[in-house]
């Protein structure tokens, strides 16, 4: 279960917006190393000339009329907000 040299767990955690404790960092690096080692089996497969599938069925763009539809009320949209004020979500300052 060695860590592959190119798995930079801190970089991946930063991309995923996930803060890790030092213990988690060590554990995930080792576990993901083991899992990636297994996943590398796919490198043996011959996929030359094969189209990728993002989806199991041949459904492509699905369109609908651009008409207003009933949606959530302001109260419903805010009912699960961790912090709210004046019918708005409260967020940390993002512009100094």
């Amino acid at each position: 279960m060695s860590q592959p040299p190119d798995l930079n767990i801190d970089y991946v955690a930063r991309l995923a917006r996930l803060e890790l404790t030092p213990d988690e960092r060590r554990a995930y690096a080792a576990q993901l190393g083991g899992i990636l080692h297994y996943l590398d089996v796919i490198k043996q497969a011959d996929v030359s000339g094969v189209e990728p599938s993002a989806h199991p069925l041949p459904i492509h763009n699905v369109w609908r009329e651009d008409r207003p539809q009933p949606g959530l009320t302001v109260e419903q949209a805010l009912q699960n907000a961790p912090r709210k004020r004046d019918d708005q979500f409260v967020v940390p300052r993002v512009i100094d």
Binding site: L15, A45, P52, A54
Partner: peptide, 22 residues
Amino acid sequence: TYVLSSGYYDAYYLRAQKLRTL
């Protein structure tokens, strides 16, 4: 996040999607 990240996307995610076809 890793399999979608720059430099690994083709080797893992795109390849898995091709295998999905097969």
